[in-house]
């Protein structure tokens, strides 16, 4: 009962934020609305007892991506006067692709044989299991991903540095 109410609130936050993000003509407001969508998705993860993913969502999307977008908006010249229009580019292709994605997702949901009930999946410690898997069975992909991120970091620092002599 209480879970359903919370679920409803989280859905309102997520979908409402997404709608404002798409329809807002003010660039800064769109970014802040996206922040609430991210918060809603975090709530969804918490409701599904995926605590680790929820915290990563907070850390990466709210602490990282939103800030990056905000800096992008603020470093844009005259961002507050910029009006984001609704002029559609390639409406037919867009409609076909989004309908296709929607139908595909619905098909996927309808084809699931067995739904797990949260009452029975008692994940006591997701974090230690994720840690063991990352440094056990999947250590090679994990390390490759770290090297990729390190390369991106060094690359970004080099690009940012080039201008000053």
């Amino acid at each position: 009962m209480i879970v359903n109410i919370i679920f409803g609130l989280v859905i309102v936050l997520t979908v409402g934020g997404a709608i404002v993000t798409v329809t807002s003509q003010n660039l800064a407001r769109a970014v802040f609305a996206l922040l609430f969508t991210f918060l809603g998705v975090t709530g969804l993860y918490f409701l599904m007892q995926a605590d680790f993913i929820a915290m990563v969502q907070l850390m990466v999307y709210i602490g990282g991506i939103t800030i990056l977008l905000l800096f992008g908006v603020m470093l844009t010249q005259k961002a507050h006067k910029l009006k984001v229009g609704f002029s559609a580019v390639n409406p037919n292709t867009g409609a076909i692709i989004s309908m296709g994605v929607f139908v595909g997702l619905v098909m996927l949901i309808l084809n699931v044989d067995e739904w797990y009930d949260l009452e029975f999946v008692n994940l006591n410690s997701t974090i230690s299991k994720i840690g063991e898997n990352l440094l056990g069975q999947w250590v090679l992909p994990f390390e490759v991903a770290s090297i990729l991120l390190l390369m991106a970091l060094v690359g970004a620092a080099t690009l940012a540095r080039r201008r000053e002599k």
Partner: peptide
């Protein structure tokens, strides 16, 4: 008593930054 309590505190406090920019 969260299993990732410390991580939770670090993650949640990052909400402050967009709030200040807002």
């Amino acid at each position: 008593d969260l299993n990732g309590g410390l991580f939770y505190i670090l993650a949640v406090s990052s909400i402050v930054i967009p709030g200040l920019v807002m």
